[in-house]
Amino acid sequence: MRKIIFAGLIAFGGLVTVNAQCKTVSALTENFDSWKEISKCWTAKPGKAMLYSSEKRIVFYSMNSPRENMYLVTPKIKAGKYTLTLDASDNGGETTIELFSINNASDAKSYVSIAKSSKITGAKKTFDISLKKDSHLGVKVILNGIHQAVYVDNFSLTPKK
């Protein structure tokens, strides 16, 4: 019995340690090249569709659920003004991207739009954003057809001076 309790305490301690490693940041640069799955400091909110890491990029895939709300949520970011650049492309059809400030990743009511929805055209996207308090940044992608995909890569969030 002691072994089971001890193993449980070690496992719980490991979970606390993992979460403690995800610190609030003031810049992010991620090319997703080393990701085999979504990083523990990021959160994937696929809804009824799929959101995963594959081929050195992030894939938003609609499957049979077009117009599903899908979010890739960053680690917590310090309040301030930033420039976000990322590569976004799709496999055809009409797709859009929108940015959100997120207070609590598990509470959809805390998601506040901070950049208007824009069409994904395959070109590099640049957004000027302002976070009024420390919060997560959510990248929302809308796919309007079945078996549609959007690919996100080269995510760079830099503070404005």
Rank of each mutant, 00 (worst) to 15 (best):
Met70Val: 11
Pro46Leu: 05
Phe155Ala: 04
Thr121Met: 04
Asn144Phe: 14
Ser26Tyr: 11
Arg57Tyr: 04
Tyr52Ser: 05
Lys36Asp: 10
Ile146His: 08
Leu143Ile: 14
Ser106Tyr: 13
Lys23Thr: 12
Ser39Tyr: 10
Ile102Gln: 03
Ser130Val: 14
Ile38Ala: 01
Leu99Tyr: 07
Tyr52Ile: 01
Leu99Trp: 06
Ala49Asn: 00
Ala44Asp: 09
Val25Phe: 06
Asn103Gln: 11
Ala108Phe: 13
Val112Gln: 14
Ser113Val: 13
Asn154Thr: 07
Thr126Cys: 03
Pro66Gln: 01
Lys140Gly: 07
Ser62Phe: 01
Thr17Cys: 08
Thr74Glu: 06
Tyr71Lys: 01
Ile97Thr: 07
Val141Asn: 03
Asp90Ser: 15
Val141Arg: 06
Ser39Val: 02
Lys56Asp: 11
Met63Gln: 12
Cys41Leu: 00
Pro66Ala: 04
Ala49Arg: 04
Leu9Cys: 15
Ile114His: 05
Lys45Tyr: 09
Leu131Pro: 02
His136Arg: 13
Arg2Gly: 15
Ser101Val: 07
Glu30Asp: 10
Ile4Trp: 09
Ile38Arg: 02
Phe155Thr: 06
Ala105Thr: 09
Ala88Pro: 00
Ser89Leu: 06
Tyr61Glu: 12
Asn144Tyr: 13
Ala105Glu: 10
Lys40Leu: 08
Gly138Leu: 07
Asn154Tyr: 05
Ser101Phe: 01
Gly8Ser: 13
Ile146Thr: 13
Asn91Ala: 03
Ile114Cys: 07
Gly122Pro: 02
Leu15Asn: 09
Gly145Glu: 10
Tyr82Met: 05
Ile58Val: 15
Leu143Met: 05
Val59Met: 08
Lys160Ala: 14
Ser54Asn: 13
Ser53Phe: 00
Lys133Leu: 04
Gly8Ala: 13
Asp128Ala: 13
Ser39Cys: 01
Lys116Glu: 14
Asn19Ser: 10
Glu98Gln: 15
Ile102Gly: 01
Ser113Ile: 11
Ala149His: 04
Asn91His: 03
Met63Gly: 10
Val18Gln: 09
Glu37Asn: 12
Ser26Met: 07
Lys116Gly: 15
Ile77Ser: 06
Phe12Pro: 00
Lys132Ser: 14
Glu68Gln: 15
Ile4Cys: 06
Asn31Met: 00
Leu15Gly: 11
Thr126Phe: 06
Ala123Lys: 15
Thr126Arg: 14
Lys36Ile: 12
Leu9Val: 13
Ile77His: 05
Ala79Gln: 15
Val139Asp: 02
Lys81Ala: 15
Val16Glu: 05
Cys41Met: 06
Leu9Asp: 01
Glu68Arg: 01
Gly145Trp: 04
Thr74Tyr: 03
Arg67His: 15
Asn104Asp: 11
Ala20Gly: 03
Thr83His: 05
Pro159Ile: 12
Ile10Arg: 02
Thr43Ile: 08
Lys125Thr: 09
Asp87Gly: 09
Ser101Arg: 14
Val59His: 12
Ala105Ser: 13
Trp35Ile: 07
Lys160Trp: 05
Gln21Thr: 10
Val112Arg: 15
Ser62Gln: 02
Val18Lys: 08
Leu86Thr: 11
Ile4Lys: 09
Glu30Gly: 01
Gly80His: 07
Met1Cys: 12
Ser117Leu: 06
Lys56Tyr: 01
Ile102Asp: 06
Gln21Lys: 10
Thr29Val: 08
